[in-house]
Simulated assay, not measured.
Amino acid sequence: MKFRLHLFELEDQAWFPHVVRQGMMDVLRFMITAIGIYKPIVPFLAKGLAHRQHNQLVDLCSGAGGGIQQVWRELEKQMGQSVTITLTDKFPNLEAYQYLAHQSNGALRFEERSVDATAVPPFMPGFRTVFSAFHHFRPQTATAILADAVRQNQGIGVFEGAGKRWHELLLVWFVFPWIILLITPFIRPFTWSRLFFTYLVPLIPLGTIWDGTVSLLRLYTPEHLQKMVSTLNAPHYTWHIGRAKHWSGTNVIYLVGYPS
């Protein structure tokens, strides 16, 4: 799919129930971690961190922290040193962040206050990452996220856990519903509301299917990302853009940029 449609996602709507939004993000976090969707891009991220001599990441638009714990472990393994990551979001999922902080013995930290990805506070330096969220933004705002990293001379990595292929829509429509029903009791931290909105009033699976479909249509292809960086006044930046293959046969779209 080379085209891009910016339809509405439920979790972006201010009126959408927060408890359902959190449940959907928890499902995404569990699935991303279970299949290791972001493992193929860790070498690109490690290279960017090594180039900048950083071991501190600032994760933007963290949602429920989908896959970040696995990325952190793989980074430490590949870099041979400790790495800390600060989770941030416009709507912080504090319960999920506290759980991840506890699981990582504090290596995964979080900012309780709302953080705008287009204007990250200067007191939060570090290599920036955006996992599974860049597609939420229209081109002007998405470009502004990249421009803010350039303006503050910070590295940035953008990663989407799909390759924008037609067969991925079939997975969302016919496989995701069954997976959600199977995994929900095992998602931690446990909440009764997640069970209620999965099995009794199935807003979480229905919302996940809708948003998953829209997300694929919204994804920026590597060609879109290349056009974005070409509009930035950043001749001193090195950019790596493309698709990394996952063991499942899908691809992960990535962009990694840092000052040369």
Rank of each mutant, 00 (worst) to 15 (best):
V58I: 14
P222I: 01
G63L: 00
F131A: 02
P139D: 11
T184S: 10
L171K: 08
Q81N: 07
S248F: 05
A147D: 14
P189K: 11
E160L: 08
G212S: 06
E9T: 06
L203F: 14
F159P: 10
I241E: 09
T213L: 04
S82Q: 14
E112D: 10
P189A: 09
P43M: 02
F123P: 05
G212Q: 06
A117Y: 01
V58E: 07
I41N: 07
G249P: 11
G157P: 05
R165N: 09
G249M: 04
E11Y: 12
L100E: 13
S82I: 03
G126A: 12
G36H: 02
E11N: 14
D211A: 05
R243L: 05
R4N: 09
W166G: 02
L100H: 09
K90Y: 14
W15T: 11
G66N: 03
F159I: 12
E160Y: 00
L28P: 03
V83Y: 09
H18R: 14
L60D: 13
C61R: 06
S248E: 04
Y38N: 05
P92H: 01
R128V: 08
F196L: 15
T141S: 05
R165A: 05
L94N: 07
T33C: 00
Y254G: 03
G48M: 05
P122E: 13
L216R: 09
R128A: 05
I180K: 00
F16W: 14
L169F: 15
R128P: 09
R21G: 01
S260G: 01
L57E: 08
D148P: 13
K227Q: 14
